[in-house]
Design a protein around this nucleic acid. Sequence first.
RNA 1: GCUCUGGUGGUGGAAUGGUAGACACGAGGGACUUAAAAUCCCUUGCCCGCAAGGGCGUGUGGGUUCAAGUCCCACCCGGAGUACCA
Length: 947
Amino acid sequence: MDYNFGEIESRWQNYWREHGVYHVKNDSDKPHYYVLDMFPYPSGAGLHVGHPLGYIASDIYARYKRLRGYNVLHPMGYDAYGLPAEQYAIQTGQHPAITTEQNINRYREQLDKIGFSFDWDREVRTCEPRYYKWTQWTFLQLFKHYYDNTANKALPIASLVERFAKQGTQGLDAACTEVLDFSSEEWNSWDEAKCQQVLMNYRLAYLADIPVNWCAELGTVLANDEVVNGLSVRGGYPVERKLMRQWSLRVSAYAQRLVDGLEQIDWTDSLKEIQRNWIGRSEGAAVWFPLENEDGKLKIENSDDAAFEIFTTRPDTIFGVTFMVLCPEHELIDSITTPEQKAEVEAYVTWAKNRSERERQAEVKKVSGVFTGAYAINPLTEEKIPIWVSEYVLAGYGTGAIMAVPAHDSRDFAFARHFNLPIRQVVALEKDAVSDPDTWEESMDAKTGYSVNSGFVTGMKVKEAMAAVINKIEEMGIGHRTVNYRLRDAIFSRQRYWGEPFPIYYKNNISYPIPEECLPLELPEVSEFKPTATGEPPLGHAQKWAWDEKNRCVVEKSLIDNKTIFPLELSTMPGFAGSSGYYLRYMDPHNDEAYFGKDAVNYWQKVDLYVGGAEHASGHLIYARFWNKFLHDMGMSVVEEPFQKLINQGMIQGRSNFVYRSKADNGLFLSKGLIKDMDDVTPIHVDINMVDNDVLDIERFRQWRPEFADARFELEDGKYICGWEVEKMSKSMYNVQNPDDLVARYGADTLRLYEMFLGPVEQAKPWDTNGIEGVHRFLKKFWRLFENLSDEAPSKEEQKVLHQTIKKITDDVERFSFNTAVSTFMICANTLTDLKCNKRDVLKPLTVLIAPFAPHIAEELWHQTGENTTVCDAEWPKYDESQLVEDTVKYPVQFNGKMRFTLDLPATATQADALEAVKAAPESGKWLTGEPKKVVFVPKKIINIVC
RNA sequence: GCUCUGGUGGUGGAAUGGUAGACACGAGGGACUUAAAAUCCCUUGCCCGCAAGGGCGUGUGGGUUCAAGUCCCACCCGGAGUACCA
């Protein structure tokens, strides 16, 4: 019987569904294992072949783990909130819930055809109230907690209130927007509004006026990871900096733990590195530089007015400071600028503020700045130092002010050169290697060598000098050792409709949480998805969007009286809100009493294997780790790091095909090999679906577009060969491959094997179907092995093939080398075909081995061997080393890399036996004279003889 | 610029420091067939040679080693991330 994949696959998919084969329970005597895919955003375009790559890999591993006796959690869901559905809604008026639902159904249909072993009973959708209830709940917990640096964890705001009432801010070390200092008397005398304002300074979810990435086109703010090169990731619209009142998450409070946690997890170095760079930890010192006062003397006490703080990673270079620079937003500028400089400075500041983020980034190399006329005093040398203002100092990092050491910082160097400011060398590679910095072509930034011209640290190594200077400034009380992070708090408000509403209402302009028992706060209906005429977010259109404090429910907006009925927050949460904790919800998705039950999380603990794209490295994977750490502080999640092992599937690029139209003759197309000069032809993208192995289907091409109906071709060997190039997979390049087409043509098992066969999972690679035939051929060959099964005992040779395969496949799967595993199957099938092997005892274990890769054919063949259970209940075959041991083993022999031959030796041969065999070998006479001096004998490898 | 990756036939890619190019595609040749499909067999890194055989080969140049695609140093080229982060 032929291999009828279509019939086999749909039959088994139905069987699995009807019998709930992949449903998982939260209790089992078996060890547990959690395999997770990054859930997809269901876009209108449906799945392309890039999506399933990771899903197939994780499915293989999940199925493998099941066969190895694990209770495996392998769920799937949808990241259903997002901009595209809403943009579409704005254009068409179609409610995003409807398009989202349609897209989800389409995704599900496509996923089902590929034969995944997901437990669909556990499906979550971020846009469902039952799910987002817990997103909102977590937000409220963030709102109700602050980060205590002493306890090094999140603590309830209530305990902070208690503390303030008793001792004010004394002894408090907490993450905050602004360092405050007040006494208990002050706290107790403040009214509600003032107290709430102070508490907002500490909350982990807080409202503040902050510079945000405003995207006018999308009508919303965006997080840093949603902006690239001054353009929005979604849509590519310009983004500007703007000061707005926004909800933010104090992710920065967890910066150190986010760095430390990377040590414990099994991710690739490159991914950890991306996160480390994004968090951007740098050690250094905060130093107060006093301003020059009327007498020109140091004035350090009362430092707030008379000094400003800078951050430096190079305190050892403080003797080389020749100017100071403030960012254009610095609050000190107005007060210190001298009357003569006023006009110039104001002009510069205005110019700098009006520049778009894009302009600024595009002109990073251009030097600009202005002198304020004011001077600071170097606290160690008591020198007078001019204070400048420049764009190259950023408001958002450190203190927005720097000490400039042009000799040892390339940016300061460029600035000094441009404005002709002095450059002073204070570090040299050797103690006496001092030269004239005016002759330098670039600054010496490396943190190596010795301090020179540096007062009390002169002669010290750079590292010693750093420590010495910090000690000194700490002793003088003008600074301290400190750590700075690049990681900023995450802006959490979006001025959009299609997202989770904030469970927050405003009483007297103060934000209050909705009682937890009232969650979820459901997304209201709106008449329009655009911002309102007054510029409010779309929720401004909602009629029923006010909070009745007394009756604890949502009511008509028209009833707002600001006494018992108050306005609700109009922003919604960003895309990453729903995806930050979904992996925990899968553990216990039907729980309406809690995010997830204690038992469930105690059982599953964490995600053991997470598979997804590296593009989430500085977004989702940071937020989710933060979210999990917070829940851990709350005693909810069991472990701090949610994703133990992470594999990034490489992006699948498109492989575009081209035809070449002659420039001289517009109706003529030249086959690739006939083109003499590429300048004579115009390459035109053709749909890859009309091309097979780079050969163009001429008839389909003619029908494709009217202008090609009369196309003429110059062929090679009767074929039109297309050119190709690797590009992004996109509709406009006609290189999108839809998995359904391939499933229909070759079957899901072929698609699964082929996607794995294409290359290592982690590696980016262009998609092309040129080799898919080979994989399909293998399955047909594998299928044929099972015709006429025999119960005879397998021969030694057949046993050997089987056990070699068991060993190799197990190794390959364990190290996620699925491409070599597929090759191993092919070799096995080829060998067994050559041996004409039809032994049940050999073939049956093979169906189990292949089941993770090609589950449908495995089920079918498993049944043909006489089993009534599903192959999913089988056990992974046992590897028997003794089956591989041979009587003799061939050993290659080499001599000085020249002479090579092979010896048959007993498998148990020793070094002495080897030496004898070498001497006895006829070939050795050619070169072996006398007794060999040394024999290196590595069993199963090689023998080396040194004369 | 910095960080991380990678560089092996016509192509995708194999190789715990141990016979480089497994496996597959493509290409060429052949068998079966009236024919096609399907299936099977042979050849296929490059150069010299009728052949036996020999020489060269993992981006480049050095090094460690009995032995290097693999380890070390320098350089060249691609891909990704990030970017006045002090």
